[in-house]
Computed example of a mutant assay.
Amino acid sequence: MHVSDLLRIKGSSVVTVRPDDDVRALLALLAEHHIGAVVVSADGAAIDGIVSERDVARALNRQGAAVLSHEVSSIMTAEVRSCAPDTHLDELSQVMTEGRFRHVPVVMDGRMVGIVSIGDVVKSRMTELEVERDSLSSYIRTAST
């Protein structure tokens, strides 16, 4: 399965936050959309960075509650790994595991076209395994009769 297949199933909407929004606004977005990370983008299409709940937790630990009024750009990760729609999910899973990150924006022709989380990848793999199991069970039942 490829990233494009996954996006067809889950959708391609991406929640973004502006780099100059404050961390309090970021937290409101995370809560509103029940997500763990957002892409930081000044225009909603180009990727300026990514920021997650972990980034907020680390910043709170270092700087205290004052960080809530700081700009998102002060806590975001600026070097963002992205993938293409034709990336195989096995490859993406390996990249995410090795890089120890859980969200990857999907980019085509320099524009963001979706985002994939490690949860999306795991859910997809579990579905594949269930289909394989059901097929094998059916084959075994048919072969034994």
Results as ranks from 00 to 15, higher is better:
1 M>D: 07
1 M>H: 09
2 H>C: 03
2 H>V: 14
3 V>P: 01
3 V>R: 00
6 L>Q: 04
7 L>I: 04
8 R>V: 10
10 K>I: 11
11 G>T: 07
13 S>R: 14
14 V>W: 01
14 V>D: 03
15 V>N: 00
15 V>A: 04
16 T>H: 02
17 V>I: 15
17 V>R: 02
17 V>F: 06
18 R>N: 11
18 R>G: 11
20 D>R: 14
20 D>E: 14
20 D>T: 15
21 D>I: 03
21 D>Y: 12
22 D>K: 11
23 V>P: 03
23 V>N: 03
27 L>M: 15
31 A>Y: 06
31 A>M: 08
33 H>C: 02
34 H>N: 15
36 G>F: 07
42 A>E: 15
44 G>A: 09
44 G>Y: 10
44 G>P: 09
44 G>D: 05
46 A>M: 12
47 I>T: 08
47 I>D: 08
48 D>Y: 01
48 D>C: 07
50 I>T: 06
50 I>M: 09
51 V>W: 03
52 S>E: 03
53 E>A: 00
54 R>C: 01
54 R>E: 02
55 D>P: 08
55 D>A: 05
55 D>Q: 00
56 V>F: 07
57 A>D: 07
59 A>S: 13
60 L>Q: 08
60 L>G: 09
62 R>A: 15
62 R>S: 14
62 R>M: 13
64 G>H: 08
65 A>R: 14
66 A>P: 03
67 V>H: 02
68 L>D: 02
72 V>I: 08
72 V>A: 08
73 S>D: 03
74 S>R: 12
74 S>A: 14
75 I>R: 06
76 M>A: 09
76 M>L: 05
76 M>G: 05
76 M>W: 05
77 T>I: 00
78 A>L: 06
78 A>W: 06
78 A>D: 10
79 E>I: 09
79 E>F: 10
80 V>M: 12
81 R>P: 00
82 S>V: 14
83 C>W: 00
84 A>D: 11
86 D>M: 09
86 D>S: 15
88 H>Y: 10
89 L>N: 02
89 L>W: 00
90 D>K: 09
91 E>D: 15
92 L>R: 00
98 E>M: 10
98 E>Q: 14
98 E>N: 12
101 F>W: 04
102 R>Q: 12
102 R>Y: 13
102 R>E: 08
102 R>I: 11
103 H>G: 02
103 H>Q: 04
104 V>F: 01
105 P>L: 06
105 P>R: 05
105 P>Y: 04
109 D>E: 15
109 D>F: 05
110 G>W: 04
110 G>Q: 07
111 R>V: 10
111 R>D: 07
113 V>Q: 02
114 G>E: 01
114 G>C: 03
114 G>R: 00
114 G>L: 01
115 I>E: 02
117 S>D: 01
117 S>I: 08
120 D>E: 05
121 V>E: 02
121 V>A: 05
122 V>H: 02
123 K>P: 03
123 K>L: 11
125 R>N: 13
125 R>P: 01
127 T>F: 12
128 E>P: 05
129 L>T: 04
131 V>Q: 13
132 E>W: 10
133 R>H: 14
133 R>E: 14
133 R>C: 12
134 D>V: 01
135 S>W: 11
136 L>K: 05
136 L>G: 08
138 S>W: 11
138 S>K: 13
139 Y>N: 12
139 Y>L: 12
143 A>P: 03
144 S>W: 10
144 S>Q: 14
